[in-house]
Computed example of a mutant assay.
Amino acid sequence: MKNNFRNIEDTRITISELMLPSHANFSGKIHGGYILKLMDQIAFACASKHSGTYCVTASVDTVNFINPIEVGELVTMKASINFVGKTSMVVGIRVEAQNIQTGFTKHCNSSYFTMVAKDDEGKNAKVPGIILNSKNEIRRFLEAIHRNDTKKNRLEKFNRENFSPENHIDELRNYNVKIDL
């Protein structure tokens, strides 16, 4: 590893692709799975550019499909490193679609991909740190920490071996469920 820290700006990636009829689902909108495939590709490119290694997807958090994407729109994806650990990176991705005739642009999706750097033997590899140059970059880094903490807490709270439904029955009273144990 040449440098111990890298600027986020140096590893940002932007891709654009025109959405074709072959990308549409049965309702005529662009298939969410196709968008996820593109997001995985840009996450890989961003993480690999930052780490200088091959990277794999470890998890995908908070995939929110906000607005549908139409056939004929130009989709632009922007990816940047939001967080780095020892061997992993969180890549934040923003997806926008533009009507190329009117110029109207809408935010369609945001997501966070956790990518892990690998060495030539397939083992986890250390990644460079990041230099935070703005309030926005600091906010994104802290948000990633909190998302990770929330995930760990959820996994601990609902661990199969320690889970007791009796401790949670009251939580279910306002939901559309019937409990029949």
Rank of each mutant, 00 (worst) to 15 (best):
Leu38Lys: 15
Ser51Ala: 13
Thr11Arg: 01
Asn159Glu: 03
Gly72Asp: 10
Asn174Pro: 07
Lys151Asn: 08
Thr114Cys: 05
Lys37Arg: 05
Thr53Glu: 01
Ser27Pro: 02
Gly103Glu: 03
Phe104His: 15
Thr57Ser: 10
Leu155Tyr: 01
His146Asn: 11
Leu74Thr: 06
Pro165Asp: 09
Phe158Val: 06
Val90Gln: 13
Arg154Ile: 15
Glu137Arg: 06
Met1Leu: 08
Glu9Gln: 10
Lys78His: 13
Glu161Met: 07
Ala45His: 11
Lys135Leu: 08
Phe141Gly: 11
Lys78Ile: 11
Asn153Glu: 15
Glu96Thr: 14
Met19Asp: 06
Leu74Glu: 11
His31Thr: 01
Ile93Arg: 01
Glu121Thr: 10
Leu155Val: 07
Asn167Glu: 13
Asp120Ser: 14
Ile42Lys: 08
Leu155Trp: 01
Gln41Trp: 01
Ile66Cys: 05
Ser164Phe: 03
Phe65His: 04
Leu132Lys: 12
Ala125Cys: 06
Lys135Ser: 14
Ser88Met: 04
Phe163Ile: 11
Gly122Arg: 02
Ala117Pro: 00
Ala45Asn: 12
Asn174Gln: 13
Asp149Asn: 09
Ile100Asp: 14
Ile145Pro: 00
Ser59Glu: 05
Val177Gly: 12
Glu156Tyr: 04
Asn67Gln: 12
Asp180Lys: 15
Glu70Ile: 02
Leu20Ile: 08
Ser59Gln: 09
Glu70Trp: 07
Val75Gln: 11
Leu142Ala: 08
Ser164His: 08
Lys29Arg: 15
Asp149Ser: 14
Ile13Trp: 00
Cys108Met: 06
Asn153Pro: 09
Leu142Phe: 05
Ile130Asp: 00
Arg94Ala: 14
Lys157Asn: 00
Asn162Phe: 01
Lys123Gly: 10
Phe5Leu: 10
